[in-house]
Amino acid sequence: MKVLLIEDNEELASSISEFLGREGYICEVSYNITDAQDKLISFQYDCVLLDIMLPDGNGLQILSFLRTERIQSSVLILSAKNSLDDKIVGLEEGADDYLTKPFHLPELHARLRAIYRRKKLNGSNIIAFNEISLNIDTLEATVNGQLLDMTRKEFDLLLYFVVNKNRVLSRQSIAAHLWGDYTDNFANFDFVYQHVKNIRKKISAANGTDYIGTVYGLGYKFNTSKQ
């Protein structure tokens, strides 16, 4: 999957492109609108990661540029300014999703994957890994063909794990993924632990492999090398 990252902050851009590179994305970076427009005309990208505040203008310009040039890339807006107007305007102008800085890299990855699924894999709504299979339309999870009795949150969490395979997922990132931005409650991460415990129990009960492991001090990891 080829991604164009339009972000004027070089440190952040390098973090994002390094992370996405490890996930097998081909990630190119533009630091301003002019350069981005050149790249968008010359090459084809599956997705554009777009910062709103850029040195030579507003990132929303890129959205109209994409429309006039009839470029079919998906757009994920990354903005420091999480004002409601920007979000609404961005989505109305054709962006596919909106992520507010500071975000967790695994969250970015999950959103990118979701956009990619919606755009490219028309109709296919099953995400599978070995014996685990997740239907994102019906929110049903099966292990070895056996349906798991899962809550919505547990399904979301398992999906987050499967998408971010072999990544360390911090409790903070999981909490933000499940509960959103404005929850002041979850510095206490007991409940993340509880959810992870439940998922592992349910997968094991269906004779699935216990891929999810604890990373000491940091969080959890969906470890594909486990047998």
Binding site: N9, E11, L12, S15, I16, E18, F19, R22, A80, K81, N82, T100, K101, P102, F103, H104, L105, P106, R167, V168, S170, S173, V215, Y216, G217, L218, G219
Partner: peptide, 29 residues
């Protein structure tokens, strides 16, 4: 503050992907 925070957070996430010893993990956490 949002952008520097995003940088710190992303760097920490990349750092925690690398080969980390036990006490370093606590520091990162």
């Amino acid at each position: 503050l949002q952008t520097p925070l995003a940088i710190i957070r992303s760097k920490l996430e990349l750092l925690s992907e690398s080969d980390i010893q036990g006490d370093q993990a606590i520091l990162i956490a």
